[in-house]
Design a protein around this nucleic acid. Structure first.
Lengths: 252, 252
DNA sequence: GACTTCTAAATGTCCATACTTATGCTAGGG
DNA sequence: CCCTAGCATAAGTATGGACATTTAGAAGTC
């Protein structure tokens, strides 16, 4: 049901987006299955087909579902198909070849605005996180290129606060020195995805903004280090970087 | 007017997209001005506001216009605001730092499929173009990462056919050797834009695909060299590269 | 069994209308 | 002169209906 009591200023189609997205995530609509047709959804939520279509448009643009005339709306949330995997033999390779090249390409300098405690959706349980807000500029005093939201385990807070302002090299070499072991292998995924509508609203981006997502997995001998980096450019262009490790990745 | 005689299978909103895009390009709707409100456009084209909005949605997602409630739809085709500019002192810098880093990041190898004569929309009059279709793979025999459509002046056809298969370095060093003069300065823009709907259809990409656009301007002493590179990944990710020079760019 | 034809279903397209909300401007009052 | 209130405007949201087009499968035919 879609009571107006839940109307926290959001339009109806936006609330439907959230509800349907939740169903995709909690398994109500499994990957590969067809979700109910528009007409059924419209009946269930007591709304018009137009509103349902507006919500489904969002899910399609996010790549969650694919729609085909005469067939239906199928869950395709398996993003692995839209991902390019790249392996690195050493961290130096990863940093120098990939991260730093992006820095060079954009020729940007970062400024840290503030640090606050944050909750990472889908993060590992038991791990506390902090959110680092920052801005990158074309040059000192120049115009802002993008906003950065970096999710980092809270146990690195002291490290970041004390050492980062003077840190010269890649940000992650700083974290690595305080991680629970040397990082021996890394895998990087590069994705391009539309920006979530709520982030667009929150940051005042243009509708239709994108994100270029770098997802990186570290593998150490002992544990898991996860950090998530979101770049929200001041304008149309958007980069989102996610850095984490996963147990499944072998050390071979 | 919007006669159905012009109905070449395209839906009405798609035809309106083209018409409005044409007006943006030919100066009917100058940059910075407000285009007529939806209600007037609906009256002019004898269609409903819904259809007009569907066409305007496309223009907004392409970054051509920005819309604000209570104000109107403003032409912002001045993409400089959504563009990051980067200057290079030498071509080597441009190639080695930027193009090649993208190659390294993606670690892709290209294979040329075929070459055909092409028409470049918005290209310089009097210049004949050819279209080079290619594919990039993760590795030889691996899965295709993206399709490439490269628009190059037709006068380079012999050069490309004869020298490219054995060419090792960047593709443009090959073109430069046959251009009308040394390239002394280059400017690169990086944009992120949604993919045009027709290209998505044509290439069978997923709806909501994007393009990362590299627009590069060469400046020689004597003339203008233009080449346009479109990367169409096999899946969600998309890169579009445009390379051309313009008279306005100074050689300073 | 293979092929064609028909049909139901689902999304795509399009319309007319109404109300809501944000914006910019103007008129009025302090 | 500044501030506020009101008003017109234009996009945003939403409804309900209609028809078109595509697809997959069922039914029928050879």
């Amino acid at each position: 049901m879609l009571e107006d009591s839940a109307a926290d200023g959001m339009p109806r189609y936006a609330r439907l987006q959230k509800i349907l997205e939740e169903r995709l995530n909690n398994g109500t609509y499994p990957v590969g299955s067809l979700i109910p047709p528009e007409i059924e959804l419209a009946a269930e939520f007591a709304t018009s087909r137009t509103t349902i279509r507006e919500a489904l448009r969002y899910l399609r643009e996010r790549g969650y579902v694919e729609r085909k005339q005469g067939v239906g709306t199928r869950v395709v949330s398996d993003t692995s198909k839209s991902t390019y995997y790249q392996s690195f033999g050493s961290l130096e390779e990863l940093f120098q070849v990939s991260v730093e090249t992006f820095y060079v390409i954009m020729d940007m300098r970062a400024v840290t605005l503030d640090i606050e405690t944050a909750e990472l959706v889908g993060g590992l349980a038991g791990e506390e996180w902090m959110l680092i807000n920052g801005v990158r500029w074309t040059e000192p005093g120049g115009k802002p290129i993008c906003y950065i939201q970096s999710y980092v385990p809270k146990r690195f807070e002291d490290v970041v606060r004390e050492e980062f302002p003077d840190h010269q090299g890649p940000f992650f070499t700083l974290l690595e020195r305080h991680a629970d072991g040397p990082i021996e292998e890394a895998v990087q995924e590069i994705r391009a995805l539309p920006m979530p509508a709520d982030i667009i609203r929150q940051l005042g981006l243009k509708p239709g903004s994108w994100s270029l997502q770098l997802l990186r997995r570290y593998v150490t001998d002992s544990g898991t280090l996860i950090a998530s980096f979101n770049w929200h450019p001041a304008d149309q262009m958007t980069y989102v970087m996610h850095i984490h490790r996963s147990k499944e990745t072998g050390t071979e």
